[in-house]
């Protein structure tokens, strides 16, 4: 519900209020890469340059690497210690595509077994969305049925209407955030008209489209077409950046380290692009590159829909923007042969 707006010059004050109670996370450049990082209580220049992060906000719940437990050996055996995640965070500036992506990987981490590390961070987080009014050429969220100015997966949604952000609140948590502040203003009839204008304009800025209709069925019939996958994967260099930066990619590795009698078990992002990902001592089911590319495409557009009824692609375009060899997943989906069983041409 649209109830309030905040002047752009008051954003620092608003974030400052929230920052007193929880950690405010904002788009930041860390080592030259844009990701979500703790706010310094001062800088709001990201409002001018921020389009979307390079590293998706999934990193707030599934960090690039994290300690799962530390252990110490003593005379009675091992003593295990698990880090706690009880701090509260507000992530400001989440784009609707990434908000959807978080909701998608929630299914992975909260089904059958709860993943303590992911959920303990996720449940302590409020998402403040920011309408995407300046998308990249490579963005194709509308093809995943996402409106770049709307989201059902955030607590608050901010939309830039010039001097002000109009705020929509969706949840109790979002309302609570608004109630903490005294810098908000009432919206006017003119603001409502303006936001409609901005929303329409934003949607029309997404020029890239891809038809994902029946992609799962088409991929199913192509699964054993080795020639097709070899051709599609030819230029891929298996660097894995598409998977690391994908907001719905969640694969991780678990490893131990120990020096003398102390050590830690930690986990970090892994990628289906790598041979080592599935390598077993005797053999590797995905030794060849085309099998790994096939896994990535089929996981997003065939296996995920089979299991959860939704494509695991939100159209954020990160994999396209970051690929060093211009591999474009939309071209693969668009180029799928139309009828089941049809052999692809060379």
């Amino acid at each position: 519900m649209i109830t309030k707006k905040v002047s752009k010059k008051d954003i620092r004050k608003l974030l400052g209020t929230w920052n007193q109670e929880c950690n405010v996370i904002v788009p930041s450049r860390v080592d030259g890469v844009v990701g979500m990082a703790a706010w310094d209580n001062q800088d709001i220049s990201f409002l001018d340059w921020y389009r979307n992060t390079v590293i998706p906000p999934k990193s707030c719940f599934l960090p690039k690497s994290e300690v799962m437990m530390s252990f110490k050996k003593n005379e009675n055996g091992y003593n295990l210690e698990v880090p706690t995640n009880e701090h509260w965070q507000v992530i400001f500036g989440v784009r609707p595509c990434d908000a959807r992506a978080n909701a998608i990987i929630d299914h992975v981490f909260a089904v059958t077994y709860d993943d303590y590390y992911y959920i303990s961070k996720r449940r302590n987080t409020l998402l403040v969305g920011l309408s995407c009014t300046n998308p990249y050429d490579s963005c194709f969220c509308t093809s995943s049925n996402i409106d770049p100015t709307e989201s059902e997966y955030v607590d608050l949604m901010f939309t830039d209407i010039g001097d002000d952000f109009v705020i929509e609140d969706f949840t109790g948590g979002g309302k609570a955030l608004l109630n903490m502040s005294n810098t908000l203003k009432k919206v006017t009839k003119a603001d409502i008209d303006k936001i409609k204008e901005v929303k329409a304009a934003s949607v029309s800025k997404i020029k890239k489209t891809v038809d994902t209709e029946n992609a799962d069925r088409k991929l199913g019939s192509l699964f054993n077409d080795t020639d097709y996958w070899e051709r599609i994967s030819a230029k891929c260099i298996s660097c894995g950046i598409c998977t690391f930066l994908c907001p719905t990619c969640f694969c991780f590795d678990i490893n131990d380290e120990m020096i003398r009698k102390q050590g830690a078990r930690y986990r970090g992002w892994d990628s289906c692009s790598f041979r080592s990902y599935t390598r077993m001592p005797m053999e590797n089911p995905r030794e060849e590159k085309w099998r790994r590319v096939r896994q990535r495409v089929c996981h997003k557009f065939e296996f995920f829909p089979m299991n959860l009824g939704i494509n695991a692609c939100v159209g954020c375009g990160r994999c396209i923007r970051s690929c060093p060899v211009n591999w474009d997943i939309t071209q693969v989906i668009a180029g799928l042969p139309a009828e089941a069983g049809i052999k692809s041409g060379k």
């Binding site: 992975v108 059958t112 969640f250 694969c251 991780f252 590795d253 678990i254 892994d270 599935t278 296996f303």
Partner: peptide
């Protein structure tokens, strides 16, 4: 790695 359907690598199809 995880044994509980999270880490992703052991799939055969879906």
């Amino acid at each position: 790695k995880c044994g509980i359907g999270k880490c992703g690598r052991c799939n055969i199809g879906n």
